[in-house]
Each structure stands twice: as C-alpha cells, then as structure tokens.
Amino acid sequence: MNIADFLVNALLFPGGLFAVLLGLFLTGLDRKIYARLQRRVGPPIYQPCIDVVKLSQKEMVIPKTANYTAFRLAPLLGFAGMLAATAIIPVAGIYSGLYQSGDLLVVLYLLSAPALALVIGASASGSPYSSIGLSREISIMLAYEVPLLLVFFTIAMRVGMALGGTAIFSLSSIVNFQLSHGSLLFDVTLLPAFVAFLICIPGTLGVVPFDIPEAETEITEGPLLEYSGMGLAMFKLTGGLKMLVLAALTVALFFPVGFGDFWLVNLVWFIFKCILVMFFTTTLIRAMQARMRIDQAYKFYLLVPTALALVSLVLTATSFRVG
C-alpha cells in the first residue's frame, strides 16, 4: 500500500473526516428518534455538529488541582484511538481495511481507548465526582470486555476452521469469507454470540441502562465533570465515532454482504445497516430502560452475554469436530 492511499484512507475516507461526520450524524439521528419515541419534536439531526462548534468557541476552564498535561492530552488519546479504529475496519465492497492480519485484536485494544482516556482525564482532574465515575468506568469495562473477547474469538475460530486451519484474527479475511460463503448472522451456532455482541454495545457506549459512569443526576456527568470547551467537544466527537466504530464492527463481523460492485450502493447500504444497529442497541433500549446500579450492570455483563458467548463458542468448537 502506498503512502497516498494510506493518507486518504486514514484522513478522508473511511477514517478521518467521513467517519467524524457520519458519527455525528448517527448521534443526531439517535437523539431525534429518541425524542420522537417520547412524542417530542426533538432537536434537528445536525444538533451534535452545532454543539461541537459551540463548545469549541467556549473557554476551557482547567482546575487548579488538575495535572495540566494529562488533563489536556486525555481527550486526544480517545479521539485518536477511535479514528485509528475507523481506518482499520473494512467496509464490504468499498474498502478492504488497513492491515491484512491480526487487526481484530488491534480493534479490541483500540475499543478501550475512549474508556482509558476518560479514566486518565478524570483522574487528572482531581475532582471527587470524577474519581467515583472513573472507578465505575473501570468496573464496567472489566465486565464487558470478557464477552466481547469471547465473541471475537468465536468468530475468528468459526472462520478459521471453515477455511481448514486455526483461528483467523483478520477482519478482512472474515469479511471476504462472508462475501463468498454468506453472512455469519444466518449461522445458528453464532446467533447467541451475535446477541451477546449487541448487548455489549450499550455498555461500551455508556448509554442509558449502562451510563452509570456518567450518571448526570447522581454524580454530575462523572469523568466529564471538569471538562469544558474544546476538551468536552473532543469527548463528544469521540462518542460519535465510538457509536460508528461499534456499528461498523457489528456489520463487518456479522452481515457485511452488500449489493454488487457499485460503491455508492454499497455505501448507502452500509450506512443503513449502521443506523439499524444503532436503533436496536442504543435508541430503543435508551427509551425503554432506566439506569442500572453498577453492581447490577457488572453482574449482568458477567452472566448474560458471557454465557451466550460461551454457548456459541462451545457450539462452534463441537460442530466442526463432528462434521
């Protein structure tokens, strides 16, 4: 891959500018649908863009007790991590990903970058509410990483065994396998893993049933409490990108198949699938559920999605030994 291609892929499409705009669009659509579900008019779809512009024009207050460098750099860490993830995840029919092997593991590590950024920023801000928020963020992260890892491993094993080898941790191979053999979503043994992955999405995003680290009514937005102006704008951008990354990852792992070779059709189909994933995992659940306590969420993640992912793992392993 030459350097010009790399720059275009990382900065314009599908990473970089395109990803940031699509992430903000998804967030805005989420807020709009959420309002319509409550029979409100709701904000316009481009509201997150307005919020980001406004925040970038506001003063950035840095607390006297804060560690200046860590406080300023933490938002960039999360943003950079998510931007890298958007450049790695392949989009079927348009973009084949940045690396050819091992990128599934890289994505798993990058997925924890926003949470780590929150933890670093919160601990650097020196606020007691932030430290409560960061301890909750770490607990919920420990809980949802287990099923997430199991789901990744199950899919890698399924694809690898079907190709007659060991587990393949390559997103582009997984996508190519599905393009020639049909989507993994229609494989019964992987259905529990699919459900487990969908359950992990709201926890990773930190939306309502699992927004315990940022509970604005009890610990006043937790880790984000001390952030204002540009720092907060970066965290808002990171949130939008995170939603896009998780939706794109779901599409790439379970149903990447598009229509034909024309890139525009594939792009629209991809965006539609992302919106579908977002609607069922974020908006609908946010509108129906109330916030859990941290111990309930921790137990929930270690029981339900982990059990589902394990079922899938065992089914996949045994089905290939018999057949």
């Binding site: 207050v61 937005e221 952030y227």
Partner: peptide
Amino acid sequence: IPRYDVERLGCRYCGSPKHAD
C-alpha cells in the same frame, strides 16, 4: 416534560457547571 420540549431549540440540562451556557 415532552409538552414544552425545549430540546427542539437545542437546549439541554447539564449536570456540571463546566458545561453550562
């Protein structure tokens, strides 16, 4: 409450004074 929905104007209640306008 949904009746006077000021979110359509872009308003939002925030928990932290650092986010306020």
